[in-house]
Amino acid sequence: MTERLKIEHLYKVFTDRPAQALTMLQAGKTKSEVQQALGQVVGLDDVSLSVPSGAMYMIMGLSGSGKSTLARCINRLNEPSAGKILLDDEDICTLDEAGLREVRRKRISMVFQHFALLPNRRVIENVEFGLKLRGVSAKQRRARAEEVLNVVGLARWAYHMPHELSGGMRQRVGLARALATDADTLIMDEAFSALDPLIRTEMQDELLRLQRTLNKTILFITHDFQEALKLGTRIAIMSEGRLVREGTPQSIVLEPGSDYVAAFTREVDRARLFDAGSVMTSLVTVVSGPGGVLKGDVSGRPGPGFLLDSEERILGTVTAAEIEQARDSGLLPRPDTRFTCVRADTRLVDVAGRCTTDQAIGVVDDAGRLIGRLEAGQILARIGAHGAVGARHV
Rank of each mutant, 00 (worst) to 15 (best):
K295A: 03
A326D: 06
T357E: 11
R382H: 12
D205E: 11
Q204P: 13
G296C: 06
P197T: 03
E97H: 06
S109F: 10
P256V: 04
E227P: 08
T94A: 07
G305Q: 07
V244K: 06
A158S: 05
Y57T: 01
G300D: 02
T356A: 12
L131A: 08
D182G: 07
M188T: 05
F129K: 14
P249S: 07
S251W: 04
G292R: 06
Y159P: 12
I59K: 12
A228Q: 00
F225Y: 01
C73K: 14
G168E: 03
I221R: 02
A176H: 11
A271D: 02
T2H: 11
S239P: 03
G99P: 08
Q140G: 05
I314C: 01
R354A: 15
L308A: 10
V173F: 09
C93S: 11
L100K: 02
G384D: 15
D275V: 02
E255C: 08
E227A: 05
G330R: 07
S63T: 02
G291I: 04
S63N: 07
R266C: 00
G377P: 04
M203R: 07
V173I: 08
D205G: 11
F264D: 00
S32R: 08
R107D: 14
S53K: 15
T265P: 00
E128C: 13
L243C: 09
R392D: 12
A71M: 15
G330K: 06
T340F: 10
V394S: 15
A262G: 05
C93T: 15
L380I: 15
S137V: 14
T265M: 00
V136Q: 06
A71E: 11
L308N: 11
P335R: 07
G305I: 11
V42K: 10
R144W: 04
Q325I: 01
D16C: 06
R156W: 09
L307E: 02
L38V: 10
Q40G: 02
A263G: 08
E3Y: 09
G61F: 13
N75W: 03
V51N: 05
R76Q: 13
L186Q: 07
V244A: 08
G362A: 15
R122G: 05
R369Q: 15
L118I: 15
D184T: 13
L38K: 13
V41G: 04
V34N: 04
D96S: 03
R177C: 09
R242G: 00
L273M: 03
V287Y: 10
I59Q: 10
R266L: 00
L219W: 02
P290F: 03
T357Q: 12
S81V: 00
V284R: 14
